[in-house]
Structures are given as structure tokens and as C-alpha cells.
Amino acid sequence: MYRILEKRKLNPTVTLMKIDAPAVAKKANPGQFIILRTDADGERIPLTIADYDRTAGSVTIIFQIVGATTEQLNHMEAGECLHDFVGPLGRATETDGKKKVAVVGGGVGCAIAYPVAKKFFEQGTEVHTIAGFRNSELVILEDEFAAASTRFVKMSDDGSWGEKGLVTDALRKLIESGEQYDEVITIGPLPMMKFVCKLTKEFGIKTVASMNPIMIDGTGMCGGCRLTVGGETKFACVDGPEFDGHLIDFDEAIARSSMYKPFERAAHEATCNLFAKEVK
């Protein structure tokens, strides 16, 4: 059993949890993920590692409430235990030898972008972070990013936080102003990553995108998380989750991610109704 050590609401739909999982913390690196189940009959859901503390033996996860399981997870409190927590899975972000990078995060994807930015920053890489949210209410990890970036550009769809516009607008501006990046790392909604990659391809800047497809076992056994990269089938769980953004077939990934949308929506509603009943 894996105890919830701390729970913090980052915004109305995004929650941070620190989980007691020493074996995972010992091996965790930015870019990797875990799979958890809330209870004995639960669904296995993958979440990227947002932070870890090897000494304390804790792993931080940040999740957005999107379906039944994340809804249920959000109803759990510090002191309670997750039934299962396995990891670290996938390959870690390759940070070696890069002098200057741009980290482009969108929405809850910023939770994953943060440890990557931090690792780069701590090893002395110049880090330009571009974070985008729909509005100021949804902003997460602002102080953390500020502390782990040489330059921090804030963007929002409505202009209520930082500048009004898309992360791609900000990135284009930086590149056109003469900033030269060894690599761009992008983590966020699929359409955002698709357009970041399109932009950097135009400028010939190597770009890595962190993929988060539907997944079950996380060890390569089921192949549910497969995507096409450079015309080849790759498994996000063992070959990724990070891939060369210029080679990913984003349209296919977007289509595949909607496979269970109706089921997820119904399950989420059912869970919400269940919790509403309990409250009454």
C-alpha cells in the first residue's frame, strides 16, 4: 500500500499528491511515469512523475480530473493509501550535453515539464520556459517554474495571466529574436505539441514531445500505447514516453486518444453521481 503523504489543490481541477513509494523514488528521473490504481478493482492509469525526493522516499504526482479514476483519486485524502503504485516506467529525459533549451508546457502538461526544466536548470543548462494556460485560475507551479528557468514566459488564452496568446506565438517570437536552442521540449495537449513541433520543424530545431497515450500494463506487454514515429510503430511505455516530435504522427495519436471517450464520460458522470449521493 502506498500512503498519500500530502495533498494540495493547485487549481479547481488539478491536484498534487506526494506518495510514499521509496522504491520508485530511488530510481525516478524526469520524463518517467508511474501507473497507479486507487483500489482493488480500479483501473490502471499512467501519470508522469512531477517530482521525487529520494531521501524522503516520496514521489509527487499532479493530475487533472478528467475521468472516473482521477475523480476518485481526488476524493482521497492525506493518510489514505493507494492500492498500487508502480514505476518508474519509460525512459528518462536525455539532458546531457545541452547548453540551451526551451521547455514548452501547456495546461496540466506543465506538471511534467517542471521536473524536466528543473533537471536542465540544475545541471547549468540555460532554460527558457514557456508555460501556457487557458486563464489565470488554471495556473500551476508558477513559483517553481520561476525558480527553475533562466527566462520564464507566461501565456494565457484570455490574457489574464502573462501575455495573451498561444505558446507557439511566444516560441516563434523567441526564435525570431535570435535565441538559438539546442533542443525544444514540449509537453501538453496533443494539438499544442503538434503545432509546437510544426513550428520548430520550420526552423530546424530538434524537438522532443512527451506522449501520454492510453496505456494498461506500462511494460510493453499490451501494445495499447503504440504510436507511429517516423513510419515505425513504437510503444510509448518502453520506447518513450518522449519521442522526436518531428517524426510523431500526431493526427493518429489524437484519433487514438479518443477511443474510449464516450465510456470515460459516462464513467466519470457515474462516479460524480456516486460522490454526490455520499455527500447528501
Partner: peptide, 19 residues
């Protein structure tokens, strides 16, 4: 790891590996 045939359409929705 499950094998696929490497034919067009294998990543359409509704295509599973047996695993």
C-alpha cells in the same frame, strides 16, 4: 511485446493486440 503485421490501418481505433 506483441507483434503487429505492419500493414496499413493497424493503428485505427478498434484494433487491439491480443495481449
Amino acid at each position: 511485446l506483441p507483434r503487429f503485421m505492419n500493414i496499413p490501418g493497424e493503428n485505427l481505433k478498434g484494433v487491439y493486440s491480443a495481449n
